[in-house]
């Protein structure tokens, strides 16, 4: 049974510090390689299929391949459904996927092991339930409103590092560790042809390969925004003591 008093004596537990930095390093590698992969084809679709000859859901104005692909005139397939066609791509696009994909999957292994260890230990030790999830009766509209107001005015609330966390902090951490991070793994493996062949239910859950890719991007956007706010909050509320608490503990 962890209490606030115990936290103040020992700081973040060793497993929290270890998995935090393992996941943090993996996320940085994944963000870097993921953006390189995105730049090769910065177009998003919904469903199973999507390519340069099909209408995208949206495009990200990123990198040298944005709106630069050159194709020959389209030739229709005789038996495809209305308008299914082919065209030759006349120039090789910018592509760094040789290293970017392999680096992404290397980072993904570290991320998967770190996240699995974190979620397992977080559940077994009660860390998740006691510190990250709001307590019964804690999540009320007025409490939430007060916490939001407190974060919009300077000076920012700056309690000591670690638990107990504020309401907004709890909700944010819970969103990231229980929803966004696992969603990255699930939407990521749904894009794998070998894994989707083994568990086709993944394609049904996310609505297809391209839907999974689009959700992977949305989830990435949430994590990237979290990372910015997380670093900003640390910078605003005593970066040295926060770093010390997450590196050496107390």
């Amino acid at each position: 049974m962890s209490t606030t008093g115990e936290f103040e004596r020992r700081g973040h537990s060793r497993w929290v510090r270890l998995t935090h930095w393992m996941i943090a390093l993996a996320v940085l590698v994944l963000l870097y390689s993921g953006v390189a992969i995105l730049m090769v084809h910065p177009r998003f679709y919904w469903g199973q299929a999507g390519n340069d000859l099909m209408r995208p859901l949206f495009e990200v104005p990123l990198g040298p391949n944005y709106h630069t692909q050159q194709f020959s005139a389209q030739t229709p397939f005789l038996t495809g459904p209305g308008g299914a066609a082919t065209a030759d791509r006349l120039a090789e696009p910018w592509n760094q996927n040789g290293w970017a994909r392999s680096l992404h999957f290397l980072g993904a292994w570290a991320f998967l092991f770190g996240l699995a260890a974190y979620l397992t230990l977080g559940t077994l030790t009660g860390h998740a339930r006691q510190r990250l999830l709001p307590r019964r009766g804690e999540l009320t509209g007025s409490a939430l409103g007060q916490d939001i107001k407190a974060h919009l005015t300077l000076p920012m609330p700056a309690p000591p590092p670690g638990a107990p966390y504020g309401l907004l902090q709890k909700l944010t951490y819970a969103l990231i560790v229980f929803i966004a991070l696992p969603l990255m793994v699930l939407t990521g493996v749904t894009m794998s042809p070998a894994i989707a062949a083994n568990w086709p239910v993944l394609l049904d859950i996310f609505g297809g390969t391209q839907s999974a890719r689009t959700l992977h991007f949305f989830s990435f956007s949430v994590i990237a925004m979290f990372l910015l706010v997380h670093l900003m909050m640390i910078a605003l509320t005593g970066p040295v003591r926060h770093l010390r608490a997450m590196i050496v503990g107390a």
């Binding site: 199973q48 299929a49 390519n51 340069d52 000859l53 099909m54 194709f71 020959s72 389209q74 397939f77 038996t79 495809g80 459904p81 308008g83 299914a84 066609a85 082919t86 065209a87 030759d88 791509r89 006349l90």
Partner: peptide
């Protein structure tokens, strides 16, 4: 009915 367009990439 689910067949889609498909670009020819790499060596065409």
């Amino acid at each position: 009915s689910e067949v889609t367009s498909m670009p020819a990439t790499g060596t065409y």
